[in-house]
Amino acid sequence: MKGMPSTPFARATASLHGLALGDAFGSQFFVPASRHALSGRLLPPDPWQWTDDTEMACSIYRVLADHGVADQDRLAASFAARHDFDRGYGPATNRMLRLVREGGDWRALSAELFDGKGSWGNGAAMRVAPLGAWLADDLAEVVRQAALSAQVTHTHPEAVAGAVAVAVASATVVREPDLSPGRFLDRVREHVPASLVREGIDEARRLLTIGDPVLAAQTLGNGRQVSAHDTVPFTLWVAARERRDFEAAMWTTATAGGDVDTTCAIVGGIVAASGTTGFLPPEWASRCEPLPNWAGAPPLTP
């Protein structure tokens, strides 16, 4: 392995900052003026505020820092305690986290969602990139811990597959930074269970020669349906092509529209795992809301 920069803590910190910056950047494109600026690649006015994607990722980061694994009970408690209704959570997650705070059993509440099928939304995938960076030394453990982290709120196999795919992508950026786009997607696919998400990764590989993200998203999805299989394949298509250039990755992702804060958060968390916090463009970082103090992540370095 040619990769493996720094320590698990440093890698996860870089990934978390990239996720938050992507999330905050993407969230600006729900404002009409910012959407207009997208065509000219003009940075939206600051401040850029992050959403539930970052808030939940901070809980994963903090639990890993404190315990070394995705302890499900501690994750559920942190998700519920740190839940800020105004950060853009979906209605099912809002209700579940409120009930957990009131003493509900997260296992039962998560499993009961959507008539007992569990949520197949993209919420488990949007928050998991720092976990892949942290545990990159052991891909089998990345897969196991990503699934555990997902199941706290998303028990549907598609949501779990989406979280596994993103975590493995983040770990692969750390482990093998010089892979070609095709081999990068191959490596991720090897660890994703049979699912619509994995089929989407196969399609993303076939579409690597397409340079237009809008055309790619027409086939792969862009998160508009807020499902894992409508979100993750496109984000991996972007990460495979643009993982050495954070700015290019963000503009490419945002251009496709859809659930832009989440797709940019996923891509940002993956590509930032490849370096240090200094990998992120300083002008962009200066516009982004700082991470919460409770996360325990060091601030961005100049």
Rank of each mutant, 00 (worst) to 15 (best):
A147W: 07
N122R: 09
P130R: 00
E55Y: 05
L113S: 08
V166R: 05
R87M: 12
R41P: 00
P91V: 13
L42I: 08
V168H: 06
A136Q: 02
V63W: 01
P47N: 14
A150D: 09
I60T: 02
D115C: 05
N122E: 00
Y61C: 03
S149M: 08
V63T: 10
L97Y: 03
S119W: 15
R107M: 06
G123M: 14
L179W: 11
E102M: 13
D52F: 14
G90L: 12
V128W: 02
G121S: 08
G40V: 02
V164E: 03
L75I: 10
F79M: 10
S149N: 14
F79C: 09
G40D: 12
D105A: 11
V69I: 06
S119G: 11
L109D: 05
W134D: 05
A57E: 07
P181Q: 09
Y89M: 08
R175F: 01
A108D: 14
G116E: 06
D178T: 14
D66H: 00
E158M: 07
D84A: 08
P157K: 03
A125E: 01
T51M: 11
V164W: 01
S119P: 14
E102D: 10
R74L: 15
H36Y: 12
A163V: 01
R175C: 07
A125N: 02
A161V: 05
A140E: 06
D71W: 03
A108K: 05
G68N: 06
D86Y: 05
E176M: 15
V160Y: 09
H36W: 13
W134F: 15
C58Q: 01
R107D: 12
E158P: 00
G121Y: 08
L148W: 13
D46P: 15
G104D: 04
A124E: 06
Q72K: 15
L97C: 12
R82L: 05
D53N: 08
D53Y: 07
G103N: 02
G40F: 05
L75F: 10
R62G: 02
G123D: 14
A77C: 11
V100Q: 07
L97S: 11
V174P: 06
A140S: 07
G90H: 10
P47R: 14
L148E: 11
P177G: 03
H154E: 01
V63L: 02
R175S: 10
W50R: 07
V164H: 06
R35Q: 10
G132P: 03
R41G: 00
S170Y: 00
V143T: 10
Q151N: 08
T54K: 08
T172I: 03
S39Q: 09
L109Q: 10
S119N: 15
A77L: 13
V160R: 00
R127N: 07
L113T: 10
A80R: 10
L42R: 04
M56P: 04
D86I: 03
D86M: 04
R127C: 11
S110P: 15
A159H: 01
G104N: 06
D71H: 08
W120T: 02
R175M: 13
R87S: 15
R74K: 14
A81W: 02
W134I: 09
V152D: 03
A136L: 07
A165M: 04
V143N: 06
D115S: 12
D86T: 15
T54N: 07
W48S: 04
L135V: 01
R62T: 06
E158D: 11
Q145R: 01
P130N: 05
A147T: 05
C58V: 01
